[in-house]
């Protein structure tokens, strides 16, 4: 088991290196750098740019150095917690970001739990009651979850929450707590706000998972051993609990790897619409103002979050399924 985890962690390293290269290429792609456009903007306004400060920053972040040097510095900095400098905010990235990374993490985590909690019973119901009205209804709901863009879902839910309950559901906490340090009241405020984004973001992932769980379970239910168990007189519920459900459980954990990237994508867009205090709104602002170190560290964070999520799901799968940790088979 330890060997499996070790191997899995080691294979993660080249992936992470490649991701960091890709992110670095992306943040280097726009022509010019932030300072050039900043100085040009100030000159257009007829103001004097503080050239000393700019020169200092340029020097510190090695803008006159070749690209690979800057890459190594960037990655090296990230390894000990220096994510670079946000030019738009005039602060180190880690100060600008604050709680946002944590909140993104918490939001994703709660969404996964929600997805599981909803998809599991619905998937089982759909598979055991195939072609019933309940199955059709749930399938239809699921399809809507896949087809409706989640930013639209967010808007529509905001609208109805406002009209029906007089609630304002934007944001992730009451405005009083935004800059406050983490304390019990803040946590409670977050908890009372978090469920709406969780439902919206979880919708698409849940729908996909129900569909695949249903198909998987149906395959399992058609196998001869189920017929044998039934023929021997086991009650349907017991048959289901004893065998097919346990097989489906494997898939259930492996599937997180495939829905996690999509879920984090959806979370970003939804967060922008609902103006949550997560990475989404700040990422898009950073991208629009070419504040590239800030954008780069967000991209990097989201990618690492995904990779780690898949890692955790792979390890959980290996714990659950001896075929994976003993053989050289990969997940799924």
């Amino acid at each position: 088991m330890v060997r499996y985890i070790l191997r899995r962690v080691v294979t993660m390293i080249p992936t992470l290196i490649l991701i960091s290269m890709l992110v670095f290429i992306i943040i280097e792609l726009p022509p010019g750098d932030y300072f050039e456009s900043y100085v040009a903007e100030l000159q257009a306004l007829g103001e004097q740019a503080d050239l000393d400060e700019i020169e200092m920053l340029r020097d510190r972040y090695g803008f006159d150095q070749p690209q690979y040097v800057r890459y190594v510095r960037w990655v090296g900095g990230m390894l000990h917690g220096d994510f670079g400098y946000s030019f738009a905010y005039r602060l180190p990235v880690s100060d600008v970001v604050g709680d946002r990374l944590w909140l993104t993490f918490i939001l994703s985590f709660v969404t996964i739990i929600f997805t599981w909690a909803v998809a599991f019973p619905i998937g089982i119901y759909s598979a055991t009651h195939q072609y019933s009205w309940g199955d059709y209804g749930l399938t239809f709901l699921g399809l809507m979850g896949v087809a409706v863009p989640n930013f639209m879902l967010a808007l529509i839910m905001m609208y109805f929450a406002n009209v029906w309950f007089g609630l304002s559901i934007g944001n992730l906490m009451d405005s009083a707590y935004v800059d406050a340090p983490m304390n019990w009241d803040k946590v409670r405020s977050i908890l009372s706000h978090i469920w709406i984004p969780v439902v919206i973001i979880g919708m698409a992932g849940t729908a996909g998972m129900v569909r695949r769980l249903r198909a998987n379970l149906l395959d399992e239910l058609r196998k001869p051993y189920v017929a044998t168990a039934r023929a021997k007189g086991l009650s349907p519920g017991r048959v289901l609990r004893k065998y097919p459900l346990r097989m489906a459980l494997n898939f259930f954990i492996a599937d997180i790897g495939s829905i996690l990237p999509a879920m984090i994508s959806g979370a970003e867009v939804t967060a922008i619409v609902l103006s949550l205090e997560t990475t989404g709104p700040m990422l898009i602002r950073a991208l629009q103002s070419q504040d590239m170190y800030l954008a780069g560290s967000f991209l990097m964070f989201l990618a690492v979050l995904t990779v780690l999520g898949v890692l955790v799901s792979d390890i959980a799968l290996a714990l659950l399924d001896p075929r994976i940790r003993l053989g050289r088979g990969t997940a799924k």
């Binding site: 890709l22 990237p261 994508s265 898009i284």
Partner: peptide
């Protein structure tokens, strides 16, 4: 690598 980066943020970055 491409599959493990969430697509919308990546698209956002490239589109920007």
């Amino acid at each position: 690598v491409l599959q493990s980066i969430p697509s919308i943020p990546l698209w956002m970055a490239l589109a920007a």
